[in-house]
Design a protein around this nucleic acid. Structure first.
Length: 448
RNA sequence: GUGGUUGUAGUUCAGUUGGUUAGAACGCCUGAUUGUGGUUCAGGAGGUCGCCGGUUCGAGUCCGGUCUUCCACCCCA
């Protein structure tokens, strides 16, 4: 057999036992909190039919979808194989793709199962997604997303509850220095409409979304690039960079938007939310890149440094329409668990207790005592003591080394003396001391 | 997709203007210690120097291509 050097595909990772302990701890906090707020789990397949995915993420997005090659002799039915047209060929030989996010599969699920689900419908979903992007710092080709969505109601209570959920999650994670930023696409549209720029709405949103990253000067430059006049840019700036409390901003925008019914609608939504919700910052500069948001949009950021957002989300009114299910408004948030994981690791927020392995290792001195070892292991396990049994009987030295490397605090040694006397050697690996005890004594000692 | 960067033992890395047999640390195995780990000491195994080609008497070292790693851009989490 030819030897191969083992490697991973670009942008993918293994999660070893140490990392998994931490990830599972983190995931459990999310899942438990979601349940507490009445969200239930949903899983969808890794792959979707390509027409479900295509066209949902913008032009760039389609290119970043991982395609799955059809099975069988797919080439024999292709007429124009010499044309060298990759785009057409791709359609013919690949009709499935790996999911790119969790929201679109969710919309597909809701549309397909409208006879079974009762609106409003709430679900959470923690699964991996794939992007054929070029990896770089903190970005992978396979990563996890953690989405919570609330679909089938337009009530502003959903916004308030989701903000409440954010506070609850971060409290449990012991991350305190965060802020919730909120805006409304209708307000942005109103601003743009008031300046007669509504035809450029999507483009302007993408540019506004970058303000934090590129700064005010470059922002102005990019606006010039899409042919805004000097006075339009000046007016846009005066609105977007209006400084003040949430109430000041609301008051100011109510005046500014008096001609735009959409804008006023948005402002009213924000005003209502201030009465219902925990604290948030009304940020007129918040736009978010994704095109399907139609109303409230929000992000959660770390106050300390600029590392991008920890969560992002918003309300979408038309996402299920493309799957034939009209007038269904949804609102969702995506927790950036990979980022949150990194912050928790940096700040040492994972409790030490989660990295402990088993409490006891059972070692046998010879093959003769393996059945006794098995018996004792199962007694310990029945008493809820996590027990590892060394499956062979190499030298005791080897078995103790194993306990040592795995941070197992206790070892039980089973040999001739022990089996005849029914008193087993319990060794404390930290202090090195050992004593011969009956099984009941061992259980009470080790459990404490 | 664009620009830069990286690749030598299981891992992290040395390796001089191209010159005998490519090194270290950690890890692994054996022994000192045949019923006792962590520490120590002695010994050992482990490398087609990413891959393909070129220059040269001679290439880990120089050149070309390709793949890979990481970083930035585009975009995004």
């Amino acid at each position: 057999m030819k030897k191969i050097t083992p490697t991973l595909p670009k942008g993918t990772r293994d999660f070893g036992p140490g990392e998994m302990k931490k990830r599972e701890y983190l995931f459990k906090i999310f899942k438990d909190t979601f349940s507490l707020y009445g969200f239930n789990a949903l899983e969808t397949p890794s792959m979707e039919n390509i027409n479900v995915l295509n066209g949902k993420y913008g032009e760039e997005g389609d290119k970043l979808i991982f395609r799955i090659l059809d099975s069988g002799d797919f080439i024999k039915d292709i007429d124009n194989i010499e044309s060298k047209d990759s785009n057409n060929l791709r359609k013919e030989i690949s009709k499935k793709g790996l999911r790119y996010d969790l929201t679109v599969p969710f919309a597909r699920y809701v549309s397909m199962n409208r006879d079974k689900i009762t609106l409003p419908f709430k679900r959470y979903q923690i699964q991996n997604v794939w992007r054929a992007d070029r990896p770089q710092k903190g970005r992978f080709r396979e990563f996890y997303q953690c989405d919570v969505d609330y679909i089938g109601t337009k009530s502003i209570v959903c916004e308030a509850e989701i903000i409440d959920l954010v506070y609850s999650i971060f409290e449990k994670l012991k991350i305190q220095d965060f802020s919730v930023k909120l805006n409304n696409r209708k307000v942005l549209f109103g601003i743009v409409e008031t300046l007669s720029l509504q035809d450029n709405f999507d483009k302007i949103c993408i540019i506004i979304d970058k303000i934090d990253k590129i700064g005010k000067d470059k922002f102005v430059e990019e606006l010039k690039y899409i042919d805004l006049s000097k006075s339009q840019i000046e007016k846009l700036n005066s609105v977007l960079f209006f400084d003040g409390s949430n109430d000041d901003k609301i008051k100011f925008l109510k005046d500014f938007l008096f001609k735009s019914s959409t804008g006023l609608e948005g402002i009213n939504e924000i005003e209502n939310l201030t009465k219902l919700s925990k604290e948030f910052i009304f940020d007129i500069n918040l736009a978010r890149g994704l095109s399907y948001y139609t109303s409230s949009i929000f992000e959660v950021i770390l106050d300390e440094k600029n590392i991008g957002s920890l969560c992002g989300g918003g309300r979408y009114d038309d996402l299920t329409e493309i799957f034939g299910y009209k007038d269904i408004s949804g609102i969702g948030i995506s927790f950036g668990i990979e980022r949150i994981y990194e912050i928790m690791k940096e700040r040492n927020l994972f409790p030490d207790s989660i990295s402990k392995k088993d409490t006891v290792l059972v070692c046998s001195m010879s093959e003769k005592y393996l059945d006794d070892s098995l018996r004792i292991s199962s007694i310990l396990r029945n008493n809820n003591i996590s027990t590892d049994l060394y499956p062979d009987n190499p030298k005791l030295k080897k078995q103790l080394q194993y306990a040592n490397k795995n941070d197992i605090p206790y070892v039980i040694i089973i040999g001739e003396d022990e089996v005849t006397s029914k008193l087993f050697t319990l060794k404390d690996m930290e202090t090195g001391s050992q004593e011969k005890l009956g099984i009941d004594e061992i259980i009470s000692k080790v459990s404490s």
